[in-house]
Design a protein around this nucleic acid. Structure first.
Lengths: 197, 197
DNA sequence: TCGCTTATTAGACGCTTGCCTTATAAGCGG
DNA sequence: CCGCTTATAAGGCAAGCGTCTAATAAGCGA
């Protein structure tokens, strides 16, 4: 009944993965420390061995998810810097990747957003992530050909960012109603109109 | 220690209001049945007297919040049917009203969205609400002057809806970073570009 | 092969929750 | 003014959670 020992880094990753899964499946209420350990297949005492408490595990999971997503977004878009419009398209595709927007994950973001409102440490992560994501978006958008009659850059970026978040939620609430392909197509359409391409 | 009797309709409203408050302040995890009763200033036994269980109270709160918001949105926009552009603007203003997007409420939507993913009854309410809200938006947009080179109507509505949701979240995460006035201005700008006004 | 570090488990404790049952009194109808 | 309905309170119960402690064994270094 005793599992093989694993290196701390592996076990921590296990617990983080189990946390994401629990959050997405059961929400904030159901993602208890014990349930996460059950999902990870370890005894409930182990959580305490690697993290100060369940809340801390949640925060670290949030940090890592943000970090991973940002890294992936950069990896998807930056190599196409030569063709700004395609770089933006790749960015959209990456945003709706199963890795971040899939049914097994996207629910976790809701919980994190919720935490960000009442808890300062979560808010700090959210702020930092938001800032970096916007910077990346601005970098991509900044290389688009400037068109006459376009919106002020700051407004266009804010709107495009809002479209992404809004479609995320739409996709989250029902992947049937607005499938991924349509989300991406809508993003492309929004970019075309916002930047007068 | 015993409160004055209140009519059932009043007490139920009290509990619903306390539920919204608890959800917004404490999130899904903190909004327990007992905590809601504490917030409402009644004994925890009373919840059972009016609702089958805490979950049911949550669902009814969701239904009522949706109903109220939709009613208010209609009341804000429809009287200005003569001037479609102003009707749309009024709609935007109403969407970001303190009544639905205020710091004391908006957190509750996150919890409801979360529930909508895993529970069929919440999903049904969400679907119905979404459908009606889109119908209202389509009605407002349908009266705008048709401009050449505009997006397909369905796309434009989907995008405008996404902008609203996205800005909501943005406003939710930090009312400092994107104040209400800016949210509304961005909505106006989005409408102008999406419908080529 | 042995021994030490430490990953891992298991159990106990106090607390809170949801559910249920019983007791009380508020206020209306007669 | 009395009595009945029922809104309200309060307590008990099992279950689950987070925290802590103690016991166990896995696997590396010597």
């Amino acid at each position: 009944m005793r599992r093989r020992r694993a290196s701390p880094v592996v076990r921590r990753a296990d617990l983080v993965a189990a946390t994401v899964s629990c959050l997405a499946r059961l929400g904030a209420k159901g993602a208890t420390g014990r349930e996460i350990c059950r999902q990870a297949g370890v005894s409930h005492g182990l959580l305490r061995h690697y993290f100060r408490n369940p809340d801390n595990l949640l925060l670290e999971t949030y940090e890592q998810l943000c970090e991973d997503m940002l890294t992936q977004l950069e990896a998807a878009a930056l190599p196409h810097a030569a063709d700004p419009r395609q770089a933006l398209h790749r960015y959209f595709v990456a945003v709706f990747s199963d890795d971040w927007a899939g049914p097994e994950i996207i629910g976790a973001w809701m919980v994190f957003w919720q935490q960000a409102r009442s808890r300062a440490d979560f808010a700090a992560v959210s702020d930092s992530f938001n800032l970096r994501q916007r910077a990346l978006l601005a970098r991509l958008v900044g290389q688009l050909p400037t068109a006459p009659g376009a919106l002020p850059m700051a407004d266009a970026i804010a709107l495009l960012s809002a479209v992404l978040d809004g479609l995320w939620i739409e996709y989250y609430l029902s992947d049937q109603r607005t499938p991924r392909e349509r989300c991406i197509a809508l993003c492309d359409a929004a970019a075309r109109r916002l930047f007068a391409l």
